[in-house]
């Protein structure tokens, strides 16, 4: 047990520091998880501590992903009125998005000559991290690489999304929210919340619905 304390303390300190940094310099490109992880890697490297030692504590922190995923239910329940009101566009948008995400990864990976393992790790990149971690195992992808892909996916929409809205002249907050949540899960949702309450609500619903739809697709297809 005492060996795991180091990993827990390092992760907590790294995360708190990264959050403080991001609050100081707010930007879609700065992600507390990535910055915190880079800090941990640097500390481990400098002190010459093997990652397996760090993971004695790290794995205990990861155990909380399970209850955190269950709590996603609240994100849908809190916005149930919006869900009822826009049920059909949400279901269609999330389902089409999930299908396009999986198949575009397949074809683009082939086009760019990515290895089988990288392709499989990319397959579930559009769903929120806790769900992606579970689904990565089902499609025999590498969990670490999947998490990296999910983060990368997350920061894409907040940057590209507003440009696409302007280009396609999309002003409906409902549509904006669905697109952000479907393509870029929780990171897109935090950007959607900044755009407005309707965008935030729809994006929260879309991230959960996309996760469930992707799970069904993965279970059926693989």
């Amino acid at each position: 047990m005492s060996e795991s304390v180091f990993g827990i303390a390092l992760t907590l300190v790294a995360y708190m520091g990264a959050r403080a940094l991001v609050r100081r310099f707010p930007s879609s490109l700065l992600n507390p998880t990535i910055i915190g992880a880079l800090f941990c890697i640097a500390v481990l490297y400098i002190l010459g501590i093997p990652i397996s030692d760090y993971l004695l504590g790290g794995n205990l922190i990861m155990m909380l992903i399970f209850p955190a995923t269950i709590c996603l239910a609240l994100m849908v329940y809190q916005h149930r009125e919006q869900l009822k009101q826009h049920l059909l566009p949400i279901l269609v948008g999330c389902t089409v998005g999930a299908v396009v995400s999986i198949f575009s990864v397949r074809y683009l990976s082939e086009l760019f000559g990515l290895s089988e393992l990288l392709t499989q790790s990319l397959l579930v990149k559009s769903v929120t991290t806790p769900i992606a971690i579970e689904l990565a195992v089902l499609v025999s992808g590498d969990v670490s690489i999947t998490v990296l892909a999910v983060m990368l996916t997350g920061i894409t929409s907040p940057i590209v999304g507003p440009l696409l809205f302007k280009l396609f002249r999309i002003t409906d907050p409902v549509l904006q929210g669905i697109a952000m949540g479907t393509a870029s899960h929780a990171i897109g949702t935090s950007r959607a919340m900044e755009m407005g309450p309707v965008q935030g609500a729809l994006s929260s619903i879309a991230l959960v619905v996309t996760g469930v739809v992707t799970m069904i697709l993965i279970v059926v297809l693989f």
């Binding site: 389902t95 892909a149 590209v160 697109a179």
Partner: peptide, 25 residues
């Protein structure tokens, strides 16, 4: 290449969700 595939696929997913939802509305 991994990063490019990831970003391109995300933009496609984004547009697909956006336009299918718009069509439904």
């Amino acid at each position: 290449r991994f990063v490019i595939v990831c970003i391109l696929s995300t933009m496609l997913t984004f547009s697909a969700a956006l336009f299918s939802a718009k069509l439904t509305v």
